[in-house]
Amino acid sequence: MKLEKLIYPFTAIVGQAMMKKALIANVINPALGGVLILGEKGTAKSTAVRALADLLPLLEVVDGCPFRCNPRVRATLCRICLERLEKGETLPVSKDKMRVVDLPISATEDRLVGTLDLEHALKKGEKKFEPGILAAANRSILYVDEVNLLDDHLVDILLDAAAMGVNTVEREGVSYSHPASFVLVGTMNPEEGNLRPQLLDRFGLAVEVRGEDAVEQRMEIVKRRLAYEKDPRAFAAAYAPAQQALAEKIAAAGAMLSEVTYSEQIIALIAEIAIELGVDGHRADITMLKTAIVLAAMEGRKEVKGADVAEAAAFVLPHRMKRKPFAAEQLDLSLVQERVKAYVKRGGH
């Protein structure tokens, strides 16, 4: 028996505009480096992630490949697929949904990176690699709830793989590496402990979510939830046009991404903001620019504007500010606004 999984439509989620935008931006350009969602429980974080995956177009995958390689990009193929190709085989192609792979905080290291195939080893006395969660996460969304509670060494591995797009295993007699490029979505409640700064920096974007304050909004959430639970199919049907429109928008933005240009002044503006705020390293600058490009593409614009930079800054900077020990943690984005205003005055747009 197969359970049909029904998923709450992404477009039916009330509010949480920042979070939704950050997630969409990451599926448009997975190179942005993932999203860290900071906030309380029960703010539709996990619903949003699953709903978004459901919305996305099917992926072309090599049929039967444990890493679901993309048959069109040779550089990202795994060993097995590459060998098949070199032997002159044509890779069978099938279509598959974008997945959301969960990493529970109780996961062990061998399950995360993969390990020695026990059964095979015992039966045949041969070593074989048994892929882990990182393998399943290739070309998917890897969702880590409460990432700050994950064992430190697991977080190290996770972020290393996320940065390299490759998982390297040198353990328990196994030596293996395979593609592992995924959109990393982590959630955490800062009150329950911090994530080390080095790790914070590896998340491309961060958003803070809060429960909606307005009574109207809260009522709307309850109403929709009730309607959905009463008749999920009818509910989904009602949102089908909106879902379709969003899916098309995402596809269109993705397609035009490489055509979006940015002026010299835009880059100068970003560098100026980064220097004045004294952010560590260069990941912030690069991510700000990349995010601004995606934001422009989402609006169907082929040129990055100052406003895109201002919007990108709000996603990219807050979790990267140098932490003064115990200074009240509140990034003042007014400086960013000022710089952008000055930029517009200088004749930028």
Partner: peptide, 20 residues
């Protein structure tokens, strides 16, 4: 050198397949 390396993979160990 990945952080999660185990000692056997770092320095070496018995060749399982040959041994079996």
């Amino acid at each position: 050198l990945p952080l999660n390396i185990t000692e056997d993979r770092l320095i070496g160990a018995i060749d399982l397949e040959k041994a079996v």
